[in-house]
Design a binder for these strands. Structure first.
Lengths: 145, 145
DNA sequence: CTTCCCTTGCAACTTGGTTGCATACGTATT
DNA sequence: AATACGTATGCAACCAAGTTGCAAGGGAAG
């Protein structure tokens, strides 16, 4: 999806040593148009280099903690990993298929107002607002997944 | 939270045989002010009657499938179960603490716009829109959970 | 060349939930 | 009453995704 991001630079900017595996994982997430499951990332990376699943999970944790990557739930028990909000990747709502677990990114400006301006009272600190449209995707509707 | 709901009636309305366990589980979810983890529901029910975890999960599945109950993710790997939208339980956004997994219900009218009017193009059928404010709750902020 | 820290790998483990199958119970049928 | 059938519940074993603990590699610092 995104060839404009300088992944190495972004890793360094958040203080992460840009090792080949970290770059590969981050790039893998960044170049995809939808959030991926860890196993999908694993497969993609292993087509070019070798990586252990523990390492993958640890790198994903680092990326999530640093804010470069966001962890999303699809209703099943595997996380999806998508790009965190940044210059080339503005925050956006998602469509989630509750049947097959597909998550798709929606237009950043789909919502008619800026939710980040809302601050629920007495609820501690809010870091971001997540909007998810849940339903059944085209494929499941027709293919009868 | 809710003593106005007729749980037995609601179960029957969606075509579920209102067995004692089903009523107990549904009531347990309905009387709580925040979505509960399966283990919490388990404990509450076992204080009065005996239930097996498999049965609990199966009942929760039934309730979720029928729409009476909603399954929410807190960022950890355990589902939270809260009331589905209905007359006494209007749809509402949630606050989610990414540190301890707490989910709290927010005011139904917190959002200045009805998100259900938005229909993302070419994305199949949307059943509902979920808004989640993610951050750190008061307790984690101060207690240093 | 030794020390230290950070990254990666491997095996075993944990957790939350699920499957398969047996049992119980209610209702309908003979 | 006895039988059969469908649904609800229970028990034990299992599963998938992710985590822990610990060892090994590798590079910069001393």
């Amino acid at each position: 999806m995104c060839e404009r991001c300088n992944y190495l630079e972004m890793l360094q900017a958040v203080g992460l040593d840009p090792t080949p595996l970290r770059e590969a994982v981050f790039r893998c997430v960044g170049e995809e148009s939808r959030p991926l499951v860890a196993a999908e990332i694993m497969t993609r990376i292993q087509s070019r280099m070798s990586i252990n699943k523990v390492t993958l999970y640890r790198i994903l944790d680092l990326l999530v903690d640093s804010g470069l990557v966001r962890r999303l739930s699809a209703g099943d028990r595997a996380w999806r990993y998508g790009m965190g909000a940044s210059h080339h990747h503005p925050d956006h709502p998602h469509f989630v298929c509750s049947r097959c677990g597909l998550i798709e990114c929606l237009e950043p400006n789909l919502l008619p107002f800026d939710l980040t301006r809302i601050h629920p009272k007495g609820k501690g600190v809010v870091r971001h607002v997540d909007v998810r449209f849940e339903g059944t995707c085209e494929k499941c509707l027709h293919g009868g997944n």
